[in-house]
Amino acid sequence: MTAGQRDEQVPFDEWDVPRQGWWLSGECRDSYSRTLLLEIATRTLFPTMLVFSLYLLLVGHYSPGGGFSGGLVAGLAFVLRYMAGGAVGLGAVVTLRSPVLLGSGLMIAVLTGLAPLLVGAPALSSAYLSVELPLVGTVSSQTSLLLDVGVYLLIVGAVLDLLRSLGGGIERDMQDAGERP
């Protein structure tokens, strides 16, 4: 298949739009390269890692963690997913365009930085918030948590973008060149 034909199938501007449905790693195309052990382990580890990444995000203000490390752990979960299931396996769990994720993350972070200007405080200031929730008790945090959420999304988006363009893109090129089935 030449580059021209492929471009017709996948227009340049839409190369990163997911086309696969949700959760179909069993239909992995390159079945010859599947490893059962890794795939099963990934199914267990994947949700655990995502929860752990959220934990890192939330405790980040006072303890080790934060948006960057949380985002990296979540990104690693997706890397594992990609290792186990290839581009198809990854496409099955991510149905968002990664630039959108990346862009909204940065947008949340920038807006958090800009928001203090509305109340006349210097940009990037943060405030202490404390909320009384039924059953849970007092929940308190800094507004800079929002900045961390933005960074978290940004990092996850960046990792997914890398996996799509470098991982999935190279796989597709190899298939086109006939080096892989």
Partner: peptide, 23 residues
């Protein structure tokens, strides 16, 4: 007036995110 000093940095960043999301 010191409040506006960060804006020449933050506004283009915000614009960049809007153009990514609205690509």
């Amino acid at each position: 007036v010191a409040l506006i000093v960060p804006l020449p940095v933050l506004l283009p960043l915000l614009g960049a995110t809007v153009t990514v999301v609205g690509s």
